[in-house]
């Protein structure tokens, strides 16, 4: 790579909101302070400080290996399942440090959809019902919630006649929407999506983007994407990651039309690398 590691001011010295925080008056749902993350001796994230606005779509863009997925996975403590990882700094959900909370509680409140759809080898219905069952939902309410979740994921009309068929019978795009429905069923406050459309065709991608717009009314959405057009279409705020650092974070329009950092400009205009 031709460019040098960018210089970023120590975020701890900055006012709440971190680097170039979007100028919004909304209370942040999630915020991180001085977040450093390590895979063994490799430091994957450097001093990330960010405020993620409630009920908005926040997108993270950046080249492969820049740490955006790692960052996403710290926010529901998913990285803790990977051996040899550690982190320091703070991750606050509604102002409360998620490390001090029960991990299952954090993950129930902060749902996640993965890059590759990963339905359980169970029926469509059982996939969506799973999160409800393990969280002790009342039997009577399960069917209703399953239907509502599938409706929110814009999947209900397509599959309402085959609820008890195996999930593996669905197409790739349907499987990913099923995974979104499954995550929505437990009514998370935040939904993290890790490149949810990278394996999907444009039509399936469009469907998922449309449903994210609707979910946004009730849920804070954080999406990692390789696709800059997707970030530009979807996101209220966009953050640009490079080599483990959050280079710039701002309103999406500002990131794409008037980036303040040269690295951001190079990346969004395709001159990167």
């Amino acid at each position: 790579m031709a460019i040098q590691p960018p210089h970023v001011e120590d975020t701890s010295a900055m006012p709440a909101g971190g680097i170039n925080a979007p100028q919004t008056s909304v209370i942040p749902k999630l915020r991180t302070r001085d977040l450093n993350f390590y895979y063994g001796s490799f430091q994957a994230l450097h001093n990330i400080g960010i405020d993620i606005a409630s009920r908005k779509i926040t997108a993270f863009i950046g080249p492969s290996g820049c740490g955006k997925s790692t960052f996403l996975r710290t926010m529901n403590r998913m990285n803790e399942t990977v051996r040899g990882t550690r982190y320091d700094g703070q991750i606050l959900l509604d102002g409360e440090d998620i490390r001090k909370m029960d991990v299952t509680g954090v993950r129930r409140r902060v749902g996640m959809v993965f890059q590759k759809s990963n339905p359980f080898p169970k029926t469509i219905f059982e996939n969506v019902a799973y999160g409800l069952r393990i969280n002790g939902a009342k039997k009577a309410t399960i069917a209703e919630t399953v239907q509502r979740s599938l409706e929110r994921a814009a999947l209900w009309t397509e599959i309402k006649d085959k609820l008890h068929k195996p999930a593996s019978a669905l197409s790739g795009g349907q499987q990913q929407r099923l995974c979104i429905a499954r995550a929505l069923a437990v009514e998370p406050e935040v939904l993290l999506l890790d490149e949810p459309c990278s394996a999907l065709d444009p039509v399936a991608t469009l469907k998922i983007e449309e449903l994210l717009f609707q979910i946004k009314e009730t849920t804070t959405i954080v999406i990692v994407t390789h696709n800059m057009q997707q970030a530009a279409r979807l996101a209220d705020h966009t953050g640009f990651f490079l080599m483990g650092k959050l280079i710039e974070f701002n309103d999406t329009r500002a990131i794409f039309q008037n980036p303040k950092k040269k690295e951001t400009e190079d990346y969004v205009t395709g001159r990167f690398g």
């Binding site: 529901n76 998913m78 399942t81 299952t104 509680g105 993950r107 129930r108 749902g111 996640m112 993965f114 990963n118 339905p119 359980f120 799973y130 999160g131 393990i134 969280n135 995974c179 499954r182 995550a183 437990v186």
Partner: peptide, 9 residues
Amino acid sequence: REASLALGA
């Protein structure tokens, strides 16, 4: 496993 853990299991 990740799918299940991510749901709070």
